[in-house]
Design a protein around this nucleic acid. Sequence first.
DNA 1: GCCGTTTTCGGCCCGACTGTTTTCAGTCG
Length: 575
Amino acid sequence: MKNREIADLFTQMADLMEILGQDSFRVNSYRKAARIVGELARPIEDLAAAGELTTLPGIGKSTAQKIEAYLKTGSLTQLEELKAQAPEGLLDLLRLSGLGPKTAMRLWKEAGITSLQDLQQAFEKQDERLALVHGLGPKKMRQLWESLMFIQSAGSRVRLGDADAVMADLVASVAAANDGGRVVPAGSFRRGRETVGDLDLLAEADAQRAEQVVHAFTAASNVRKVIAAGPTKASVQLAGGLQVDLRVVPADSFGSALAYFTGSKSHNVRLREIALKKGLKLNEYGLFEGERRLAGRDEESIYEVLGLPFIEPELREDAGEIEAARAGALPRLVRLDDIRADFHMHTVASDGACTIDEMIQACRKRGYRCMAICDHSASEVQANGLKADRLLQHVRDIRQAAKACKDITVLAGSEVDILKDGSLDYDDSVLAELDFVVASCHSHLSMAAPEATPRIIRAIEHRYVNCIGHPSARLINARAGMEIDIARIAQAAAANDVALEINAHYMRLDLRDTHVRAAVQAGARIVINSDAHNTEELSVMRFGVTTARRGWATPDDVINTWPVKKIRQFLARKR
DNA sequence: GCCGTTTTCGGCCCGACTGTTTTCAGTCG
């Protein structure tokens, strides 16, 4: 699957074209194409083979031809031509904050600097060529130097779960200075993306109070550096390197500002276009007809005046949500309070930290009516996986503990390894003793799609398998995991009454959002599991729900929301 | 380069902050 690869090529083209000062609308169209291809769940090869590339929004004849040529030849002539016109190292310069295409061009043309390395050397030698670059004063130089040092020490985007803890503290700090005015997260964090590049925070305050709100923000305990601070807007860098932007707006504009700063950028562009067609103007201060404000206090009013139902933040990616809204076809997304079950958690029997009873009590406290305990199977030696005899004893222990709790159905299960060839880690006679089987890959994780997909499908077709755990086995920011053909896997799952897991741990979120959407479209059932190794970790369920929402999943799609009777019927269909 | 309820050409979202200017360009979101 070359989706990511091709998306990166288009991004490179857009960056180079921008540096070369080419038409900005063409640049944007390449950026859009990169986004569309990058977020596609189906392999781009399949669409190309079927001649369906131009059915994608933002992909026209010309872009389709480039994709087809690249798939055929492995290179992209237009990109090579651009690279011949500008040194490739210039692209890296764009990673510096405060340095855009114009400055990159000037560094090259006016000082002969064409890479991060060149720039660093020029700084270190206090090269006089730098003084020749128009628009580069002492402050800008200092900013670029700091940014250069930063990208050398900092990593990539921050995982949603890590950002979540930081965000909670910041909201508390700012809210304490805002006399009850609203303080809420916006940006990709609010949309629930699996990683965030920065954090956005919005506060409601009048002009008088705005100053103290901005001050409370820039003075928050974990702020390392104040990047910018005006009367209504400020940016800081936290100790961990994460950048946070705050905007302060009056109550009348709070809703429009929230919509604006939640994005995504492309969703906003669509909203503005709709506004324009109605002769209106939409910005962060409201929706206006001439000077008259028609909406802005809350998000709902913006959508309403634009003639649309409210669109949930998780859907705002310009991935069909506007069209669905117009057609009245938006899904009723699953919510955390719909969740009444968790089917994947570990105990001290394998590598968990809590006992069966402790996990049961914690699930009861969360209001669940059904749960499954699924410890590791024999092959997971490092995780103290259970050999068959220990598993059978463990099953008896779970059933014994379950008897004491009438208000929750406790299923005895296992997280069984899917071996390299797609077979399972226990014999059928052992699996037959279990109520719930999660089958997961824990080894041979660098498999490409042609091997990985049949491996997983073989497990799906297995008589005793109820669920495929973390299907790609990726770890965000740490391991790419297996390439999987989600369309084929979802089709097999739907046909075999197997649920596909969204592993809710924020390191995994696997299935990822685009996979969930493809799975739901193919009619597969989704199960959201915490994979908790202690009672505390049951709370990661919320990240899984967010991912399910980003995948357009409804309560009906997600078996965790079902009554126990319906869950039992689903499991019984397997055998 | 894409696209169409003003369609095959002519548009394509808009404002805040900074640093360098000498009235504004560049960057960012």
